[in-house]
Design a protein around this nucleic acid. Structure first.
Lengths: 344, 344
DNA sequence: CGGAAAGTTGGGAGCGCTCCCACTTTTGCG
DNA sequence: CGCAAAAGTGGGAGCGCTCCCAACTTTCCG
């Protein structure tokens, strides 16, 4: 490619080489490179020139070794690529995180883990302190990756806690309130056979949304029936499946609170196939306010959770934790909001 | 969290500590850790015990510095999170790459770059040799990131070349043949007003698909008309826009070759809005064979490109390049195949 | 039974950088 | 003009690991 200086790693100029060329000491070059004060203009110029001439770029591994900082953070998503791509929630999180760290020197590394092998490799990576901190979303209750994180002692922030007494810092949407207001809305519409499609129950968010559903029902004096609860895994296909099941078990259902928009889209498909009109026959409320909620037919009434803001908050917490390690963990709860469109 | 040995980086046990505890030399410990041969069972046991007792984990930065290997590769996607999530092509690539490197020690790092800031940060990251090689997809003609890659001299493989005389190793689908067969199919159906919606023209794939369209037309003796060509950017919205435009300019259009399935989905929406039946009034062929092609109404006839296999091939080339650096660049062309469903 | 070959082992010499201290030069002020 | 303080500078001492060689054991074979 360009000049000989580029090619193999061996040939790359070092700090020392720059120092020699500029006729100064290593310390001075280091100071210039790191923008430290206390360097005479003359020396600075000489060094800058030498750097330019040699095409010098600091070796991060060496810097890492010396400073024990990695200048990178990882966003771990324990899901398959397919889920990453199909779930808009992740995109928003990434966007939030990226925007929050944009004025730091931290490189964001996205890491997908779904197999045992990948988990082991990740362990080596984290143990080797290749990042300064870790963000993790889509946390399942007994995810071994979290244990891994606890063991490494790396600053960590979860997007979605595992339980109410989560010992790690986390950012959570107000799942309970969100679900509760969704179901109240359905009840307010006069619906009485209100079903729900939950997410995977090994995630706290799913359980809490279910709990919100139950409380709203209880408050309204409507008895909760087991037949009205179906389970999905947040995927569109699972929503379709769950809705079909619900329709079979309880043909009289007139409203459904679905724990995610993607599943709601699936549910819509099932309803349409069964010839039910939305919302005339069955009213539907989703959760997330994903972009697709606007484009369903009819547009989906849903609980807005501020995903991008979640990402931002996660990054903020992590930065604080990296800056002041050892401080006790913290949590942030972000409020949710019902967005009424046409499906309910 | 666990024992005191975990907490802050400072306290982590080193090779030397293990050696001391095991009563052997540093070299022996290193050999055990790296699974080298030539260690007596006795020493090996002692070392393993010491490692377990201390909870020793090698520091990667130090290893990196000593070996000048990073044990990681980056997959760079110069797009926004939104595009990453909405374009299923990326998910397949990731899956392919992940599966191909699954039995290596390499950690896959996903890096999104869309702003100038992020580009600068990436430069520092790559220059610092934090990865052993780079894969990049969605390459636009004049993308500054590619120049960056060339400058760093890091082993690199592109998913999609920039032009026919691409000096970097790459994996490409047979865009020309794919587009050509799609349009031939349309022509074979007796359609004569065949339009096309292209991708962004700063990508080689878009240009070549357009070229394939033109050739098929030319071979059939059908004159190419500028009015029949509209441009998109591979997004669904752009497909919808382009189709609307096409319909205005050329109401008599009876077939469209769309350069991506996502755009085709958008085009379908525009057609439906305009009251055209698919394929009766307008036949449609997409490109990619993304999962969504199966679920459109009607299911989309499309050109299948083996995205996952592309990811795999990219990883394979990169591994070779890392193993034998300096070898001249190589390329792989994967064939495409027309999948006939109901839209054409 | 001796010596060469094979099997093990310890540890020095870096890898390229930052940190920090001691030293030199410059500056400021009485 | 002299001296103390401030500013600027060089380079040693690591950071934790791998590489490699010299040295020591053990084994093998004539």
């Amino acid at each position: 490619m360009s000049s000989r200086s580029a090619g193999r790693g061996e040939g790359r100029p070092t700090l020392e080489a720059v120092a020699a060329l500029a006729g100064v000491g290593r310390g001075t070059v280091s100071r210039v490179v790191n923008g430290a004060v206390g360097v005479s203009p003359r020396a600075r110029t000489a060094v800058e020139q030498a750097i330019a001439e040699l095409g010098y770029v600091p070796n991060r591994a060496a810097r890492s070794l010396a400073t024990s900082r990695a200048d990178a953070i990882a966003l771990i998503v324990p899901e398959t690529e397919t889920r990453l791509a199909s779930e808009p929630f992740f995109a928003s999180i990434i966007r939030g995180v990226a925007s929050e760290i944009s004025d730091t020197e931290l490189q964001l590394l996205l890491i997908l883990v779904s197999t045992e092998r990948e988990r082991r490799r990740l362990a080596g990576f984290l143990d080797g302190r290749r990042v300064d901190g870790v963000l993790m979303v889509s946390v399942h209750a007994d995810d071994p990756v979290v244990e891994l994180l606890e063991r490494t002692g790396l600053p960590t922030v979860l997007g979605g806690r595992r339980s109410e007494l989560e010992p790690i810092s986390y950012v959570n949407p107000d799942n309970l309130g969100g679900a509760w207001s969704a179901v109240r809305h359905l009840l307010g519409l006069g619906r009485r056979r209100v079903a729900t499609i939950t997410g995977p129950l090994d995630m706290e968010a799913s359980c809490v949304r279910l709990e919100g559903y139950r409380r709203a029902l209880a408050e309204a004096g409507v008895p909760a029936e087991a037949e009205l609860v179906a389970h999905g895994d947040f995927s569109e296909a699972s929503g379709e499946r769950a809705m079909t099941e619900l329709l079979e078990r309880e043909p009289g259902v007139d409203a459904v609170f679905v724990a995610s928009d993607l599943m709601a889209a699936g549910a819509m498909r099932a309803l349409r196939r069964a010839g039910r009109r939305i919302p005339a026959d069955v009213a539907l409320v989703g959760f997330d306010d994903a972009p697709l909620a606007r484009h369903t037919e009819p547009p989906l009434t849903t609980v807005r959770q501020p995903s991008e803001e979640m990402g931002r908050a996660m990054a903020r917490l992590l930065l604080e934790e990296i800056a002041a390690p050892g401080r006790s963990h913290r949590q942030v709860i972000l409020s949710t909001e019902l967005v009424v469109r046409e499906s309910a």
